[in-house]
Amino acid sequence: MASQGTKRSYEQMETDGERQNATEIRASVGKMIDGIGRFYIQMCTELKLSDYEGRLIQNSLTIERMVLSAFDERRNKYLEEHPSAGKDPKKTGGPIYKRVDRKWMRELVLYDKEEIRRIWRQANNGDDATAGLTHMMIWHSNLNDTTYQRTRALVRTGMDPRMCSLMQGSTLPRRSGAAGAAVKGVGTMVMELIRMIKRGINDRNFWRGENGRKTRSAYERMCNILKGKFQTAAQRAMMDQVRESRNPGNAEIEDLIFLARSALILRGSVAHKSCLPACVYGPAVASGYDFEKEGYSLVGIDPFKLLQNSQVYSLIRPNENPAHKSQLVWMACNSAAFEDLRVLSFIRGTKVSPRGKLSTRGVQIASNENMDAMESSTLELRSRYWAIRTRSGGNTNQQRASAGQISVQPAFSVQRNLPFDKPTIMAAFTGNTEGRTSDMRAEIIRMMEGAKPEEMSFQGRGVFELSDERAANPIVPSFDMSNEGSYFFGDNAEEYDN
C-alpha cells in the first residue's frame, strides 16, 4: 500500500510504541512475548500442572481467558453494579484439565481477579502490559475465525453469508486497541457500523446529549479505520460520505453494504499476525530463551520457528480426527482463516481442507461434555516452508469459486491468482447506482469489472525454506488448481455463540 510509510507498523501498534527502528520493534515485541511466557509459567505453578498438562491447549485457553477477564475493567465495573446470582464479580476462573488415573478430569478453578492481575503485572515488570493482553485477544479471535462461520451475524446486519472472507476479527472485544483495529476485516468494521446506525434509528437519543457526542466521535473513528483499509480513492470518498452524514440511517447502511461487497474484489488491507497460545510461549521462556534479547516478529519467520520446536497437546472428542484438529489450530496460529487453501497447503506441506470436510468441533470443551471418553493427542503445528504475512489485500483475480465463501483475504505475501467468483459478486451490483453516491458507485463498479483474471497478485513473492531466515531465496510455489480455494466452501461450520 502506498501510504505504508505514514502508518505505524503493526509491531508498533502491538507494543504501543512511538516510531521505533526494526531492532527496537523486535525487542519490544519480544518483551511482550516474554511477559506472556513468564505469566503462563507462574500460572502453571499456581495450578500445580504437570509439564504435559501445561502444554494442553484447553488449559492455555482457560488461563488466557482468566487474565483477560481480570483486566476487563468495563465488564468488571458492570458486574459490580449489576450483581447477578451466583456470579462473584471479583473472581474469575474456568475449567482446568488434569490427568488422573490414566483419565482426563475437569476441575473448575476460581481465583481472585486481583490475584491474577498481581501475577500478570509481576510477570511483566510491574506494568499492565496491555500489548500482551491484546495479543491474547487476537489469538482467540484468530481461533474463532478458523472455527466458526459468522453466517447468522452477517444475515442479521443485512449482509450476504458468502462475504465471510471479510469477517476477520469479528469476535475481537471493543477494547483491543490499535492492534485489534489493524486485524479487523472490512466486513467486521461494516458490521460494527451498521449495528451502531441501527441503534440510532431505533433509539432517538442515541446521537443526542453528552453521551451522543461520545457516540458520534466513536462512529467517526470507526469510519476512519474502515476508510484506511480501502485502497481505492472511490471507496475512500464513499467512506467520507458515510462519516460526514448528519443523521446516519438506511442510506448509510446501503452504502456500507455496497462497500463491503466491493471489497470482495477491490480488497481492503487487513493486517495478519501470528499470535500463538500462551502454552507455546511459556515452555520456550522456561527453556531459557530470551525473546527480548533475541527479538521477535509476528509477521516473519519467528512464529514458524517457534511452532517448529513446540509440543502442544489437545483434548480430542471420541469421533474427532486429531489431524483435522491440528489443521484448525495451525490455521489459527498463522492467522489464515480466509487465505486461499492452495497457498496454505503449499506452505504447510500437507493438504489443507475446507472447514466442512474437517471432523472436528471447536477447541474448547463445553462444561456439560462427558470427560470419560476424552483422549488427548499432539497437535501437528509444523510447516514445510515459511512466508511473510501481508497486510495488503493483493490485486484481484477471477477463479472458480464456491457456493460458500466467494473470495479470499490473503494472509501471506505469496504470488498467486486470487480466487473470487466474479459473476456471483457482480450480480449483486445491478441497477442500484442512484442517489448521492452514484458517481462513486459507478466508478467502483467500473474498477471491479476491469479486474483481470490473468493478473498475478504479489508478483514474484515466494515462500522460503525454514533454514532461509533472511528470506534470501524465494520459492514461487505451484498450486494444484483442481483443489478448492475457499475454506468455508459450501460450508456447515458451527455458528459462533458468545
Rank of each mutant, 00 (worst) to 15 (best):
G5M: 02
T6C: 00
T6D: 00
Y10A: 14
E11W: 11
Q12W: 04
T15A: 03
D16P: 00
G17K: 13
E18H: 13
R19Q: 02
N21Y: 04
A22I: 01
A22R: 15
T23P: 01
G30D: 01
G30P: 01
K31D: 04
I33Y: 02
I33D: 04
G35N: 12
G37C: 09
R38K: 10
F39P: 10
I41P: 10
I41V: 12
Q42S: 04
L47N: 06
L49N: 07
Y52I: 03
G54K: 04
G54C: 05
L56Q: 04
L56E: 06
Q58F: 06
N59I: 01
N59W: 04
L61S: 10
T62E: 10
E64Q: 06
E64L: 12
M66Y: 05
M66L: 08
M66G: 12
S69Q: 07
F71V: 09
D72P: 04
E73G: 07
R74C: 04
R75K: 15
N76V: 15
Y78F: 15
Y78R: 05
H82V: 08
S84A: 15
G86K: 14
G86D: 01
K87Y: 06
K87R: 10
K91G: 01
K91H: 02
T92E: 01
G93D: 06
G94T: 09
P95S: 14
P95E: 14
I96G: 04
Y97K: 14
K98W: 06
R99F: 02
R99N: 12
D101H: 06
R102Q: 02
W104T: 04
E107D: 15
E107V: 09
L108T: 13
L108R: 07
V109M: 15
L110N: 03
D112V: 08
D112H: 12
K113A: 01
E114R: 02
R118L: 11
R118V: 06
I119E: 07
Q122H: 14
N125H: 10
D127R: 11
D127E: 13
T130I: 02
A131V: 12
T134F: 04
T134K: 00
M137F: 09
H140I: 09
L143P: 09
T147M: 10
R150G: 12
R150K: 12
T151M: 06
R152K: 14
A153G: 11
V155E: 02
R156M: 05
R156L: 02
G158H: 13
G158N: 13
D160H: 08
R162C: 05
M163T: 15
M163E: 01
M163Y: 03
S165A: 15
Q168E: 03
L172R: 03
G177I: 04
G180W: 06
G180M: 08
A181R: 07
V183F: 09
K184N: 06
K184M: 13
T188V: 03
M189I: 13
M189V: 13
M191H: 09
M191L: 15
M191R: 04
M191E: 01
M191Q: 12
L193N: 13
I194T: 11
R195W: 10
M196G: 12
I197S: 10
K198P: 01
I201W: 13
I201S: 06
D203C: 06
F206D: 01
F206Q: 13
N211W: 09
G212H: 11
R213F: 06
R213L: 06
R216S: 08
S217E: 02
R221Y: 05
C223P: 08
C223D: 09
N224L: 08
G228S: 10
G228F: 06
G228P: 11
G228W: 05
G228M: 13
Q231S: 09
Q235L: 13
Q235Y: 08
R236G: 08
D240S: 13
V242S: 08
N247C: 15
P248M: 04
P248W: 14
N250W: 12
E252M: 06
L256Y: 01
L256V: 13
I257S: 01
R261I: 07
A263G: 14
A263M: 11
G268I: 09
G268M: 07
S269N: 08
V270Q: 15
A271Y: 10
H272P: 02
S274W: 09
A278E: 02
A278H: 04
C279V: 12
A284R: 15
V285I: 11
A286G: 15
S287K: 10
F291H: 11
E292F: 12
K293E: 13
Y296M: 11
Y296L: 06
Y296P: 10
V299E: 08
D302A: 15
K305V: 07
K305G: 08
Q308R: 02
Q308G: 13
Q311E: 01
Y313R: 07
N321P: 00
P322Y: 04
A323I: 14
H324A: 07
Q327C: 03
Q327E: 11
Q327Y: 03
L328R: 06
L328Y: 02
V329G: 08
M331F: 03
M331L: 15
A332G: 12
A332D: 08
C333D: 02
N334L: 01
N334M: 11
S335V: 01
A336C: 08
A336W: 00
F338R: 01
E339F: 03
D340W: 01
R342H: 04
V343F: 01
V343L: 15
L344Q: 09
L344I: 12
L344T: 13
I347R: 03
R348Q: 08
R348I: 10
T350C: 12
S353Q: 03
S353P: 15
P354M: 02
R355C: 10
K357P: 01
G362Y: 05
G362E: 10
V363Y: 01
D372E: 15
D372H: 11
E375T: 12
S376N: 14
S376V: 15
S377K: 00
E380A: 05
E380L: 08
R382P: 05
R389T: 04
R391T: 03
G394A: 05
T396Y: 09
R400I: 09
A403L: 04
I406Y: 09
S407R: 10
Q409K: 00
Q409N: 11
P410G: 04
P410N: 02
S413P: 08
Q415V: 13
R416H: 14
L418G: 00
P419G: 06
F420D: 00
K422T: 10
A427P: 06
T430W: 03
T430E: 00
T430M: 03
N432D: 01
N432Y: 13
T433H: 04
G435C: 05
R436A: 01
M440K: 03
R441C: 07
E443K: 09
I445E: 04
M447Q: 14
M448C: 01
M448Q: 14
E449P: 11
E449T: 15
G450H: 10
G450Q: 11
A451F: 14
A451N: 14
K452D: 00
K452C: 04
K452A: 08
E455P: 06
M456G: 15
M456Y: 11
S457C: 14
S457G: 15
F458T: 02
Q459P: 07
G462D: 01
G462C: 08
G462I: 03
E465N: 01
E465S: 00
E469P: 08
I475W: 01
I475H: 03
V476K: 00
P477L: 03
P477F: 00
S478E: 00
D480N: 07
N483K: 15
E484K: 14
Y487L: 01
F488N: 03
G490H: 03
D491R: 05
D491T: 03
N492M: 10
N498I: 14
